[in-house]
């Protein structure tokens, strides 16, 4: 074969690959939108499920997902940022930091059901938080921590050394240099990565399964120690655990659509933050 033929063939193969990926994604989104949009109404978004979940809405599941996402963020964002600042700015780079980084990378590959089991052992049992928003949020926090740390470290790495040196040469202490001349430029990147991690956590089912999510609750959670409903689990219940699958399938698709809208919304927020700060910095 001629060199040029090989080039063209390769190029088209790669193009085919990416087109295929986009097509699959499009098909999924279209399917969910097409089958779910009919279920969406004001009542669906603001009412409790009724009549054995065959009617009514998914309000408690929306609220539950918001609550645990909030707990997840409160736990993993600061912790992840502190860890990243320590690793990137303070720790002496060597064998130990390499081992820590390797562990973090590996943690992000651990199946989410394992985090669920760990959450039961640590938060539900040992710390006596019971099956609750707190236990589930913290479990998801652990799950997102590797993402938060890695994203935050990447963000810190994009800040040039000359910003640090310039500050130090003007008599800044190390922390002053980091606080005033590194973090302001790293935080948008940190947030972007972190929000992507949160979006992933919001869609998880396994980690919340043993740590606090409820099959059905006729009322909203009234404290961080309450059980709660959540979108991904509600979806799972409707789609596979319900006795009248035919009847609730549209509701399942509606729930899926809301969940996807939530996740896409978070991703969009990440994109907007990045865009906004990039413009400001340029």
């Amino acid at each position: 074969m001629k060199k040029q033929t090989v080039e063209t063939l390769g190029f088209n193969l790669f193009r085919l690959g990416s087109v295929f990926v986009v097509l699959i994604l499009g098909a999924i989104l279209f399917d969910i939108f097409y089958k779910g949009i009919g279920a969406i109404s004001w009542e669906f978004l603001t009412a409790e499920p009724r009549m054995g979940m065959t009617e009514g809405g998914i309000f408690p599941a929306i609220v539950g997902t918001l609550y645990i996402t909030l707990i997840t963020a409160l736990f993993s964002v600061p912790l992840g940022m502190f860890a990243a600042i320590y690793l990137n700015e303070y720790a002496r780079q060597g064998k130990i930091t390499r081992i820590i980084r390797l562990s973090i990378r590996n943690l992000s590959g651990v199946p989410s059901i394992v985090y669920g089991l760990f959450g039961v052992a640590l938060f539900v049992r040992v710390l006596h938080l019971g099956t609750s928003i707190l236990s589930a949020g913290l479990t998801l926090g652990l799950l997102t921590l590797p993402w938060t740390i890695t994203a935050s470290e990447e963000a810190l790495k994009t800040v040039p050394k000359s910003y640090r040196d310039g500050a130090l040469a003007l008599g800044a202490t190390k922390w002053q240099a980091i606080r005033t001349n590194v973090l302001p430029y790293a935080i948008p990147g940190m947030l972007t990565g972190t929000i992507l991690g949160l979006a992933r956590a919001a869609g998880e089912t396994a980690p919340i399964l043993f740590t606090g999510v409820a099959f059905f609750l006729p009322f909203l959670p009234d404290s961080p120690l309450s059980q709660f409903m959540a979108l991904p689990y509600h979806l799972y219940v409707l789609a596979t655990q319900h006795h009248d699958v035919e009847k609730v399938m549209p509701l399942a698709y509606g729930t899926a659509l809301v969940l996807i809208a939530f996740v896409v919304g978070l991703n969009l927020a990440a994109v907007i933050i990045r865009y906004h700060f990039r413009k400001k910095r340029g």
Binding site: P160, S162, Y163, D165, G166, A167, L168, A169, L170, G171, N181, Y185, R281
Partner: peptide, 16 residues
Amino acid sequence: IRRRIGMVFQKSNPFP
């Protein structure tokens, strides 16, 4: 020391 002995770098490094 760094306040008494200032420094200008080879590659100008204004902060953004």
